[in-house]
Design a protein around this nucleic acid. Sequence first.
DNA 1: TTGAAAGCGCTAACAT
DNA 2: ATGTTAGCGCTTTCAA
Lengths: 331, 331
Amino acid sequence: MGVTIYDVAKKANVSMATVSRVINGNTNVKPTTRQKVLDAINELGFRPNAVARGLASRKTTSVGVIIPDISNLFFAELARGIEDIASMYKYHIILSSSDQQKNKELDLLDNMLEKQVDGVIFMGSSVTDEHIEVFKRANVPVILAATVDESQSLASVNIDYYQAMKEAVQFLAEHNDEVIGFVTSPLNATINEMKRQGYEDALSDKGLNFNQDLIYAGDDSYNSGIEAANYFLSLQKRPKAIITSSDEMALGVIHGAQDQGVKIPEEIEVIGFDNTRLANMVRPTLTSVLQPMYDIGAVSMRLLTKLLRGEEIEQEQVTLPHRIVERDSTK
Amino acid sequence: MGVTIYDVAKKANVSMATVSRVINGNTNVKPTTRQKVLDAINELGFRPNAVARGLASRKTTSVGVIIPDISNLFFAELARGIEDIASMYKYHIILSSSDQQKNKELDLLDNMLEKQVDGVIFMGSSVTDEHIEVFKRANVPVILAATVDESQSLASVNIDYYQAMKEAVQFLAEHNDEVIGFVTSPLNATINEMKRQGYEDALSDKGLNFNQDLIYAGDDSYNSGIEAANYFLSLQKRPKAIITSSDEMALGVIHGAQDQGVKIPEEIEVIGFDNTRLANMVRPTLTSVLQPMYDIGAVSMRLLTKLLRGEEIEQEQVTLPHRIVERDSTK
DNA sequence: TTGAAAGCGCTAACAT
DNA sequence: ATGTTAGCGCTTTCAA
């Protein structure tokens, strides 16, 4: 551009300090002076340089967001929640996908810190001690969104995955005392482990059948859902219900079963997880455990703004509510 | 942090300039000196301040991305393409959703320019004269991704929407000389107008039936696809094929029709647009016009890097290839 | 209410 | 091959 605060000051016949005050909404400026400055700003088409500002004030009003994969429906929804609140508080988002690779995650964090982000929102598979150490050394607040740190030493926003999965299994067990299959995912390792635990505990609480054969390791994709269906159908003792750790895999399971002429939910009930928009886009519509992705993002960002503004925080580990949304893939 | 280039210089017994040279990979440094500096950097845990760097060099290595809605599958995929190439070239992405509101788009651009982004990738519904004017005044390169500027005065990456839609209709017309319905969307107004034109021209080329009743104005959502199906089924002369301007609406059409007992593709054929992952997640699987979203993003970003580095550009308006991916929703 | 002036941490001539 | 020295455009004491 070329127009600086100095040019404005000269034009308005005031000092740079006064222009700065006007830009920043400082009240200690005489109204007439303020107007003079405002006029000069308009005439010159002055646009404050946020980089210079950042250097002088040591605040950039931008926050880093490390996300496994922005093209994933689940995370994209979460990102939107972050973004909406960020823009409400005048923060910018620097967004990068990590593919859940630890090295990439750490590198991204480093780059963002070089850019002097005021804070970071992190989504990732698992939080190792190294992660924690790096986060603490970062000198800016870090929030984990939909990401569990077992040591509970970082601020975070999640649902109770263990309990959610347990309830889903219990829900099935009400009208189904037969075997229940489970499709896991390697993504979000820690969270999936919690889900698996909930699954197992629910079964043993009910005195139901459990063995390793009933767990199929998917990869979070639609196709792995289809493969899971094929696998379960090939079992001697077929499950009468299947629960997956994501909606996309649940759709795969439904279609995989239907492709083999199996009726859903009559012969096999299916429950997904996350309650993404996909749950309505399938026949029968998918019963799913609602996880409020948008809210997790929004609450994470809100929490970050509180930290950034030194506001009172009641609780650094936030747990949002979940619930089962019943549709037609269950009886 | 607190550690600056000055601290490193002192520790290594060299000048700041030398440290700067080492950081920036300048070759004019004696290997032993370089090593001394590197050691000092490690010992002190020095991390270069990108903000200071940006101020001094007038380059931020960050680019702004204005996107209608990051939680939309289509745009999220595009964003991922942008991001992958950006990170390959060491650029950071500042990402904001505009909801295709002109004011928001212009505001976002303004904010990004304040942040001194080196360039901008813009995705939006329509490009008005005001957009163009603002883009030109921005003083940084702007690329339109999956966004058409009819005046052709800006760099852009698209497919030939007109031709793509025309081919889709011709494809249907091969085995279907009956009426063909069309579901539009208000999103991407200009592009949808091109698609509509392709639809109409294809019909008239074939001497086929056309009237306004055959166009249903959807809103790009799954539900509006269902509504479109209901609408078309209520017509006296039902279409024998329906083509939509997005996959999500196509799924809605399929399910809306199936919910009323209509067989796809036997009674009605359906074609979607974009060939998103959804096309495989439905029964019957969806024939769709492939638009390479990821590539559009990647090529846009690559084009931007060329502009930024002053590399030779052959063509500022890039048209990527499209094609029809046949699946089971058509005969 | 306003101004003067010293940085913020780095790059980029220009010297040597 | 290395050092000196202006800035980059703004914020922020400190004074007035």
